[in-house]
Nucleic acid binder design. Structure first.
Lengths: 208, 208
DNA sequence: AGAAATTCCGAACTCTTTGTTCGGTAACTA
DNA sequence: TAGTTACCGAACAAAGAGTTCGGAATTTCT
């Protein structure tokens, strides 16, 4: 299939986005000027404004592209899981992040005015909450904690870990992290720290 | 006890910070100019630069103040919990956030270039990780999941929920949220969604 | 292949905002 | 009360944002 639109547009868009990510990693988003971007991308400055209103806009565009890219992989993943899988396959998010590490870094650092990261977060949160609700309805159980809260907590957890993972060399593979996050979800943090279930009452202030 | 330093300094600092928060809520951090801040604070523009290099700096200062403010309450809280309590008392964070809601909103939106939120996050994360390690050493158990990961996950969870809570009217009280977060920590997300422990294996893809 | 449409260039221009300086005045501390 | 320190305000240079437009080049459509 051929990508839609004018080739020139695709080329300059790609060049601008790549330039933005590179520069953001080099000197921080804030410090970048539009001229630097266009210079690095080898594009006329006026052209920049033909594509987006400002830096921020460009960054948000990148987030959208990234999400689209992820979605493109999703159907195949869903297929792999035999029956109606509705969740966001965490492992593939981490693998995708490993592939597109620079972009993920810039986004997850919350650079720009935060719009990009908020948009990123919201995408994941909406996915998660929908998946939770569907699952609960499917099994006919009633949640013990409001699902909106559970979704927020889970999203925060995921993004917190993801941000850390793409930033530093943690030594954990995508599969490692996924397994840990799963255990954490299933057995809880008290278990994760190594306490026996019987210690739980005394260990409540691990949280307070 | 008398607050340290020159009264004039305290006054203008406070005025500048209040102005910044107000304006950030009204029109977004990005759109604010230094002149607007000084105007709102009724302070000469040159004075602004005598206190901080730019908007960002001012915001980071606010974060520091906030943390300091929280710490001031902490000893009393620690006292309440009979023996050596080391964790960050979540409930008091939420109560503090309720008191200082506008400030928390601005910070947790990730406005500015993200430095403020990163600093905020890092403060909490460091606290949490230290608390976890101490607790684990105290009880002589070995963690089943690396504690750095657990700390990241927990911090993300807390901040995700906190950001949501100060932003929208969720209808949950600080005590509600705290209780839910505790249950989530102790029993895990699978339990939280209402599934029986026996459902766990089949419910793993709530996470993957 | 040819025509029409679209995009890119680049240079010029305006306007806003930033960040700095400095002498005089007022407020505070000790 | 004396001495220190902070604030004011006006003026300045520099830089970046955002817009405009005619002509050249590419691409798409027929």
């Amino acid at each position: 299939m051929k990508p839609a639109g004018d080739r020139r547009v695709r080329r300059t868009r790609a060049a601008l986005r790549r330039a933005l990510v590179e520069l953001a990693l080099e000197k921080g988003f804030q410090a970048i000027t539009v001229e630097e971007i266009t210079e690095r991308a080898d594009v006329g400055r006026a052209t920049f404004y033909a594509h987006c209103r400002d830096k921020e806009d460009l960054l948000v565009g990148i987030v959208r592209d990234l999400a689209e890219d992820r979605e493109r992989l999703l159907p195949a993943v869903r297929q792999a899981h035999a029956q109606g899988f509705t969740g966001l396959p965490v492992k593939y998010i981490f693998e995708h992040a490993a592939q597109e590490r620079p972009v993920y870094q810039v986004i997850l650092r919350g650079e720009g005015d935060g719009r990009a990261l908020r948009e990123f977060t919201e995408l994941i949160r909406a996915h998660a909450e929908a998946a939770f609700r569907e699952r609960v309805a499917q099994l006919g159980v009633t949640p013990r904690i409001p699902l909106d809260l559970v979704a927020r907590a889970w999203t925060g957890e995921l993004i917190g870990v993801l941000a850390w993972w793409v930033e530093s060399d943690t030594g954990y593979s995508a599969a490692d992290i996924t397994a840990h996050l799963r255990d954490l979800s299933v057995y809880g943090r008290v278990w994760a720290t190594g306490l026996a279930p019987s210690d739980a009452p005394g260990a409540l202030d691990l949280v307070p």
